[in-house]
Amino acid sequence: MPSRVTMTVNGKTVSREVEERTLLVTFLRDHLGLTGTHVGCDTSQCGACVVHIDGRSVKACTALAVQVEGCSVTTIEGLAAADGTLHPMQAAFREHHGLQCGFCTPGMVMSAVDLVRETPDLTEQEVRNALDGNICRCTGYHNIVKAVLAGAEAMKAEPSRIAAE
């Protein structure tokens, strides 16, 4: 049954008629054209589809668009500043080459931003444990963990910007 769903995505209000069974990730990719959010496993395991709902990381393949009615969603497209300046976590992934094929990267970055928001001071082991909902099929974890730790430091240096998200 079609239903109108309205939410804020990357700071803009969007409203669409969708079938009620539409997944959030389908809504973002197919209805809004925001293809930065990836579908990896489609079984809630891999984390390639991670977005923020009201600031908290969730798997967009395991939520219905209608469940997110009225919420604020941030995708990887919403992280960089309007002038294209990368979010500190994105910059850290680039600097430390925290990717190989790049398919898992949007989810890794979104999970990392949420993690650092909650726990600014992280050890390497804590990062490894906390990223267990994100799988890198290239097994590029070493640089991903390095990037998250560097991104965490950089986010501390830019508190005002992070708070504005």
Binding site: S44, G47, V50, I53, R56, S57, V58, K59, T62, A63, S111, D114, L115, A130, D132, G133
Partner: peptide, 9 residues
């Protein structure tokens, strides 16, 4: 339980 994203839902 599960992972961080599952715990958020």
């Amino acid at each position: 339980i599960g992972d961080r994203q599952v715990r958020h839902m």
